[in-house]
Nucleic acid binder design. Structure first.
Lengths: 111, 111
DNA sequence: ACTATATTTCCATGATTATGGAAATATAGA
DNA sequence: TCTATATTTCCATAATCATGGAAATATAGT
């Protein structure tokens, strides 16, 4: 991954509303959630939400899927994983692995 | 980790110059690199670099360490790991782990 | 065609952010 | 104290980004 792409991905979630949207979708799983559901659950006005969903979609972290009048958005896990891998690539100058594997679907506490 | 903190961390690296600084420090390891070394290696004017280092330091992703006239900056691996863990926390609605462990100090290719 | 619902686009406004030269500040050595 | 080097602060400017109501667009059912 090149720097500009990583910046685009990071920028798309470096904003409170968008990070909440993304995290909710990450937890929701592959079926995703419709824009209206997100708006209601997060309390974000439709036009504002639409703006943020477009940002996330354009960056590639979220994927829309039209089902009738609804558009279901879901997290793009592959893009997220590529980003996380990029951040830790070749870390620590070969010292004993300082950045341990983080990812788990069932971590208990807050990180 | 709460959303606002995660946004602060993400914002601090959601910028090309700062992401390059951070990635260089991540790869440099715990001894870090002086501001002047970063400026030379990345070709960033001193005042601009100082601005970005302050952003990264304030967010907590980078730690300064004064040694005489030099200030060595190093990556805060703990903060980075906490952030990565936060992004994937409770992911995938309990499906088989869709976000696999990413972190390694010796990955070979590009992510 | 008409109605209801879902979502997006338009747009003006306000807010935040990045840049780099010049000057200021700090530290070390002689 | 004087000089050289390292880094930061100051500052004005330009650029980018976030907000949400109103209107427009799309889809489905009758």
């Amino acid at each position: 991954m090149e720097t500009k792409l990583a910046v685009a991905l990071l920028s798309s979630i470096a904003q409170e509303a968008r990070l909440e949207i993304f995290r909710l979708l990450v937890q929701t799983g592959s079926e995703g959630m419709a824009a209206g559901g997100l708006a209601e659950k997060l309390g974000i006005p439709a036009s504002t939400l639409s703006f943020h969903l477009k940002e996330l979609t354009h960056a590639g972290l979220v994927t829309p899927n039209q089902q009738g009048r609804f558009i279901y958005y879901s997290a793009n896990y592959q893009a997220m994983n590529d980003l996380l891998a990029y951040l830790t690539l070749n870390c620590c100058a070969g010292e004993q692995s300082c950045c341990t594997p983080q990812c788990s679907s069932e971590k208990t506490g807050q990180a």
